[in-house]
Write a protein that binds this DNA or RNA. Structure first.
Length: 458
RNA sequence: GCGAGUGUGGUAUAGCGGCUAUUACUCCAGUUUUCCAAACUGGCUACAGGGGUUCGACUCCCCUCACUCGCACCA
């Protein structure tokens, strides 16, 4: 793993149809990547697994799918309009950039949060504030990480709306709706998988930091007194998730220290995966958000978001434990983890050791020789049968058999089914060769048993 | 956004102010081939985009876009 470079994986992902740079024929667009035929299936296998584990298989979960464009008040209540707006200023000499508000606070100036950019700029002049290196500072600039658009035909300040930078708020805004519809017992949760948009200052590292990304997220509403136990349960659930992805042995949990946490969070644990070339990077996080979000929405919206327990207990604003998974980062981790190099007959082999339940193609069917019509016909027959049974089955009849095996290895197909002359007649009539991707071992299996054997793993 | 660097077929690469732009693999078609990238024949595909200098630019200059590293950011 150590000598594998991220570039090798990026190349394979593009060459074989997993992930392409966005808008490529026009020179691309920074921070965007498109999923190709195999990538979209891999991604969908992951989201389906997630939805099954966290929503379908549980009694206490409710799925939602909220809009990307929301009432801008949502983002004022959540704090994003403020916190996504960073005033930056540049040291003219060293060209380093600093948070202007932090510089002012370091000078003991108070009330910085309430100041406009102009007011802060004026203070820099007035107090002759220098950079930490003692140099002159340039003009400050505002960095807003939220994408803006306009709702309706008129483009003015009143019509400004934002593309959501996270999916969480769509769940908080639907909290009341779901309670009204189902009145679930607490604890219960809302779940959502969806796109988010962040105008990153420096996107990059393949699909690690994107401007348009997908998040799989849960908001789990609880009694405040129970948060510690529930937090532990979700830590275990997160671990179980990474076990299902085959990543658990490469995941490191990181207890985020108080100073680095959002001010409303009492505990945050991030999950890191070790990527080639990048080292350990965050792929998921678990945060106890207290009642910060619902409370803020109750204040700003003027709507009562309290929950009244069915046993007649006192109404209260539920607290929230929030597990978040970066979908694209999970896909990338699965790809990186699967990327394997070994040797067959002294020849280097690159293959994707994808877990069978995630592999975009489960089985490939190939005739031993492509120009023998009777072989091809029999193979087509088996292909049709398996395709109906398993869905994700690929037909391969180009090149020679060894080449096709390698090609299927490279896209992570767990099993190849080869139809040869012994399938047509003789002692082993009606049996085929099943070749295992990881071991390259072959096994003779009768056609009748084929779908049982293959669907066992898939 | 700033600084530095890079940009040649799908991938990885060679090259030069001037011939039809090199090579390998991939891909496609055909011959061959009875189980691990065999061989042979043929074919498709590239100088990131735009402008300038020049008789002539892939090569030199400018702008744009993208990528890499560093700064900053990571809500």
């Amino acid at each position: 793993m150590s000598d594998v470079k991220l570039d090798d994986i990026v190349s394979l992902a593009k060459r074989r149809g997993f992930i392409y740079p966005g808008s490529e024929i026009y020179g691309g667009l920074a921070g965007t990547y498109d999923y190709g035929p195999l990538g979209v299936t891999l991604k969908r296998n992951i989201t389906n697994l997630w939805w099954k584990m966290f929503v379908q298989d549980r009694e206490d979960m409710f799925g939602v799918d909220s809009t990307i464009i929301m009432n801008p008040s949502v983002w004022r209540a959540s704090g994003h309009v403020d916190t996504f707006n960073d005033p930056l200023i540049e040291d003219i000499k060293t060209k380093k950039r600093y948070r202007l508000d932090h510089l002012l606070e370091d000078q003991g100036i108070e009330g910085v949060d309430a100041m406009t950019l102009e007011q802060m700029a004026a203070l820099v002049k007035e107090k002759d504030i220098k950079s930490p290196d003692g140099n002159e500072l340039g003009a400050p600039a505002q960095f807003n990480m939220m994408f803006k658009t306009h709702v309706g035909p008129v483009e003015n300040d009143e019509s400004v709306a934002y593309l959501r930078p996270e999916t969480a708020q769509g769940m908080f805004t639907n909290f009341k709706n779901v309670v009204d519809s189902f009145y679930p017992d607490i604890p219960f949760g809302l779940a959502q998988i969806g796109r988010s948009f962040r105008n990153e200052i420096s996107p990059g590292n393949f699909i690690f930091r994107l401007r348009e990304l997908e998040i799989m997220e849960l908001e789990y509403f609880i009694y405040p007194g129970e948060w510690e136990d529930i937090f532990e349960k979700w830590l275990a659930a997160q671990h179980e998730w990474f076990r299902l992805l085959g990543l658990d042995e490469h995941i490191k949990e990181h207890e985020v220290p108080k100073a680095d946490r959002a001010h409303y969070s009492k505990r945050t644990v991030d999950c890191f995966f070790e990527f080639p070339s990048l080292g350990f990077q965050e792929v998921a996080g678990l945060a106890y958000r207290t009642d910060f979000d619902l409370k803020s929405h109750q204040e700003k919206s003027g709507k009562n978001l309290e929950y009244r327990p069915k046993d007649g207990g006192e109404a209260f604003i539920p607290h929230v434990v929030e597990p978040t998974f970066g979908l694209d980062r999970n896909v990338m981790a699965v790809l990186c983890n699967a990327f394997t190099v070994d040797e067959i007959n002294g020849e280097k082999r690159i293959f994707l050791k994808l877990p069978a339940h995630l592999a975009p193609v489960k089985v490939a069917v190939l005739p031993l020789a492509k120009n023998k019509p009777e072989l091809v016909a029999k193979a087509r027959e088996i292909y049709a049968m398996l395709k109906q049974e398993l869905g994700a089955v690929m037909w391969v009849d180009t090149g020679n058999i060894g080449k096709n095996y390698r090609k299927m290895d490279e896209i992570g197909v767990p099993y190849c089914v080869t139809v040869d002359f012994d399938t047509l007649e003789g002692d082993t009539k009606d049996s085929v060769t099943v070749r295992n991707r990881d071991t390259t071992q072959q096994q003779r299996i009768s056609i009748g048993d084929l779908k049982n054997v293959l669907s066992h793993d898939a």
